[in-house]
Design a protein around this nucleic acid. Sequence first.
DNA 1: AACAAAACGTTACAATATAACAATCACTCA
DNA 2: TGAGTGATTGTTATATTGTAACGTTTTGTT
Lengths: 160, 160
Amino acid sequence: MSDELNPYVNHNHGLCIQSALREAHDLCKRRNVRLTALREKVLEQIWQSHRPVGAYDILAQLTQGESRPAQPPTVYRALDFLQEQGLVHRIASINAYIGCSHPGKQHNGYFLICERCKITAELEHPEIDQSLKSCASDHGFTINKTRIELTGLCINCQNT
Amino acid sequence: MSDELNPYVNHNHGLCIQSALREAHDLCKRRNVRLTALREKVLEQIWQSHRPVGAYDILAQLTQGESRPAQPPTVYRALDFLQEQGLVHRIASINAYIGCSHPGKQHNGYFLICERCKITAELEHPEIDQSLKSCASDHGFTINKTRIELTGLCINCQNT
DNA sequence: AACAAAACGTTACAATATAACAATCACTCA
DNA sequence: TGAGTGATTGTTATATTGTAACGTTTTGTT
């Protein structure tokens, strides 16, 4: 992981946002699906930090300066789209959403969620995927989706 | 796993409930915490099946035949207690609760959740725990809680 | 331009969870 | 044993998260 994308390292986050949006555009173009203005705004909001954000936080941001406040389905529909396209992940343990750090790639990400600062890193580990898969299949179980959420303390929050 | 506790095999589920309650009693006694009548009722409700149940389902059951309906905090407090004692797990991806199949033992369970019949098995796999732990520590991250929820199709629901 | 499908707006509501305070229970120790 | 204390439960109210349903607008296609 380059430092530019490493949430634990001081970095130019503007570049994270830029590259996330660019990748999203490319991906949607390739797949011939529409990254509409709304969807892009939602994705951009999500990428404002490396912390998962709640749907209603996004909603509040969208509403900023608008004449009429946006409504929940507006956000949830955009989130559904973004999740379908693998651009965003839902973190179930805290009901929040985070940008995918390597969209397009086939992957089962897993998440390191800091309990203190909330910064969340997405990692991959194909061997673990494989272990889980084979373990499940020992029980005759076929996995469709893997969800791994690890909470604890990140490197910056250890000593406090 | 003995067939008596294997959710995928036809078994005398009464024995599952019995043994879960007995273990809970023993454990609470050893720890000198109180498995009150209410907490036991909630645990018993949860153990009615090998499917995770929602808090409001439990609430509805508690309310059955009572003069005044039970209120949400009643159930959530009992659930908090049962989770603290490791007698119950929360399945975050579906907001539901399931009895722990091996309480007392230090463990990071992971869950195979059938999308079709909802039957959920809890497995252990110390090697995966270890891999995750060492992976996380490569990033300076200390894990407090591991949450692994795998959704898919169980052995009985594959061919339908 | 007419049409169909997709996306979005809007209203209403469902489902899940918690805060705050009052009442009751159960254990302890004088 | 019974007064005091902390734990547990009851109760009211409300916060938070998510969805159903239907109408309108936009987009892409013929």
